[in-house]
Amino acid sequence: MDPIISIRNVSKVFPSGLRALNDINLDIRRGEIFALLGPNGAGKTTLISTICGIVTASAGTITVDGHDIVSDYRAARSKIGLVPQELATAAFESVLPQMNFSRGLFGKPADAAHIEKVLRDLSLWDKRNAKIITLSGGMKRRVLIAKALSHEPEVLFLDEPTAGVDVELRHDMWQMVRELRERGVTIILTTHYIEEAEEMADRIGVINGGEIKVVEEKTVLMNKLGKKQLTLTLQQTLSQIPAGLANYPLELSPEGDVLIYTFDVQKEHTGIPELLRELGRHGIDFKDLHSSQSSLEEIFVSLVKESA
């Protein structure tokens, strides 16, 4: 299937000389949830702004559903809904007129039923006549999402949607994003919360220093880079790892009561049975053992460190 967004050799150099994007190539698949991860200043927002037409690329081309974002900007932009990172709202306006404004701006005739549905889905219907300035931060965030959905976009950009949002609203938003995906909307989100990407995304792209470092299915990424650890809590403390176990990548805790064995999930043989037999042969008993997989967060940190 052809990608809904296709980014080819896109670079952006700001007048200050800052190279915010460096030769980005990226395809976003139709109907997926794509999470763009990266530290502050990595180029996440610049990339989104470039696709949406707020920032002009210095080089390269971008198409949205086959429409070039420059030469065919009307067709391209009308498919996109953007929820910006900043809570930028028309503070003195009420919610409902703002919804109609956004829909009109994107070239759609008024549709009271659709607007009502979007507002109800986001629990904003009761606030439809409230001035935006009177709403809480979380509610303002919902208003921005509602505005972005007012014209029934096929692609939704969520730039740090849950920054500064409480746990309940965050889960509401995740739910909403999943429902949107079920309706066929493609979603691209940037986030600082790695658990968010881990929870939601189908694919993950890591951007740093204006370059895409990795694009991978979430599960593949976690398998590929994920390390598992087996933690053994010992019956008796050890002063050092016995020489016979030197072949195993083992770590002994400073107290000498915990042994940590790190292994690669990709390898066919984890080496665990052999290790356990060896331990038995050395007379090391353990009272507890558990294994854990490194989280996306750890993967992310290691990736960013690597590229720095």
Partner: peptide
């Protein structure tokens, strides 16, 4: 005012 409050993002990203 939209420039000041940041809401101009919508004008710039709209098909206008």
């Amino acid at each position: 005012f939209p420039k000041f409050t940041g809401t101009s993002y919508e004008l710039l990203s709209a098909p206008v």
